[in-house]
Design a binder for these strands. Sequence first.
RNA 1: GCCCCGGUAGCUCAGCUGGAUAGAGCAUCGGUCUUCUAAACCGAGGGUCGCAGGUUCGAAUCCUGCCCGGGGUGCCA
Length: 652
Amino acid sequence: MHPLAVIREQLSPLFQEYVGDPSPYLEMVRPAQDSKFGDFQANFAMPLAKKLGKNPRELATEFVEKLQLGEICETVEVAGPGFINFKFNSDWLTARLNEMQQDDRLLISSADEPKTIIVDYSAPNVAKPMHVGHLRSTVIGNTLCRILNFLGHKVYGDNHLGDWGTQFGMIIFGYKNFLDEDQFQQASVEELARLYKLVNQLSEYHELVKKIPDIQKKIESTSAQLQEQEANADPKDKQQRKAVGKLKNDLAALKEGLISAEEKVAVVTSSPELISQANAHPDIARLAREETAKLHRGDEENLKLWNQFLPLCIAAIEEVYQRLDVNFDLVLGESYFQPFLQTVVEELQQKGLAVESQGAVCVFHEGNEAPFIVQKTDGAFTYATTDLATIRYRVEELKADCILYVVDARQGEHFKLLFETAEKWGFDKIDLRHISFGTVLGDDKKPFKTRSGDTVGLESLIDESIQRARTIVDVGDDAKPNPELDESTRQSVAEIVGIGAIKYADLRHNRESDYVFNWEKMLATNGDTATYIQYACARICGIFREVGTNRESLRESDSKVVFTHDAERALGLQLLRFAETIEAVVADYRPNILTAYLFETANALTTFYGNCHVKNEPDAAIRASRLLLCDLTVRVLEQGLALLGIQTAEKM
RNA sequence: GCCCCGGUAGCUCAGCUGGAUAGAGCAUCGGUCUUCUAAACCGAGGGUCGCAGGUUCGAAUCCUGCCCGGGGUGCCA
């Protein structure tokens, strides 16, 4: 059991005479905010005393007197208004470390009640290449799978692919009208991607050509309105000032929209090939939608094409996942659930949940203006319908207790409505959670784009990261007196560092917030990065090579951990906090708690490294103890990084 | 209009369910390689936690109002 759990376990029965459920108070036992107070602190005496109408310091003292922590704690003291500070006995800590040394799970116990958990993540549209927008869901989702799995839950990482939507109609239309047969033979996926892009571009062109005059009119009217208001507004009237400000904003947004529309149109008109294609297909958008509708109706030709394209698209995406070391347990795309959608709608109607409204079938929820549309006016189903069918499948076929949707925050409302609908529909036992996350931003604080304004492809992002990492590896190794890495090792280290940097940069941020993507920061060799932690591991591996000690046999020897320096104790205590950290991560599905812990651990290690020499330590027992600490630290760091899907190298 | 999220050091971000003097990293400045990897370490400066109230022993954290930014908002997913 880890130290925090031990304190909580000792405290727990003492609450009996004061309160029914001690758990909220037990959670007020935390790592000490400042090490001068001790190792852990309990803050429950103040709120509990208030509730009981007692004096908080006296109450804290009552607890301390009843506690029997003689073997475990060196001191347990009441401080300030009623904090209880715990400082562990060093012998007890070293005993725990020796226990940890023998434990493959590093004192992390398996879940008491293993659950079946679906992690729904990544879910790209297979018709388009993956881009940076898929990064967060993929990385966070994969980490949650790894952690939950490690805790002994039955986990299904499920890639709920977009494989049945409008984008396939576009590809089919493109295939029928613009196919380059030779290209398709040579590089089918690239050709399909080109077709998708082309059809999308031409559809958008026609749409924008129609919209531009409207935008211009809107700009004129807004501009006129603004002038009038500015002329007449009383500058002291806040309401009026606000209205003027809003008009200015609107106008700027409209102008920006106009410029971007004109640019897109210009791309087509300036290319003789594109403009002739556009003119030849004035009704392309509708016709592409019609291809989708035909596919959904079961049209033989389109279904055949779909069956031909899908494996190709999936193979292309799979390649990216392999580079990211991401594996799914299930890949059940939207298409899989099509046969069940009609029934879902009928059931919802029978139960009186879904009603017809403006030609569509909708579920309305109190307090929400927006309807949850399960069938459109044209009879087609929506992703709302698919999501409901998917919940049923996961509950009935997979026996899921919990579903985590790792999907960006903008879909919050969809999930709110989905969960409410599912509950009323009868799936009220399952724990449904939207694990939402923010956007990846560029330096301009707008969604991350290339300089030319295109979305950043995930492949090219990975390529660039590895390339940048390679430069760091080369520079670092060349700077050594005797460079020790050969060409292939350098490349594999660059891959580990490059991929690790991307993942870590994403995971270290609180998932709810947006973050700014920055190559220099994520690949920095110093600071809160994967590179820094990986390097810390490699330095320690270097010690073992230098000393000539085999790590496995070290663990089997009689050597024990002993503390002879503050840095050893601090590192040891930090290592023992691994289990408590994993608990905290899972409590709210926040991987950044783990990255913060690993960074702190790496820091504790470097402090130790600077203060406690291993190789030159003359006392054999102390030297062995330090080697044990080194070994344990690397195990914790490597295990922690592995849970984040990040690898390490023996030499860097 | 309505709804959601955010505003913390020059920059990028933590801050868990209200706890002790608000923390990291980067950048800046000053030191450290004849000693296990300097891809490293040590030290220093830097804050009106958007603003104003409120709740209480105690508020960056909870409540109300306002300001600023982002997102969503009936048939895309």
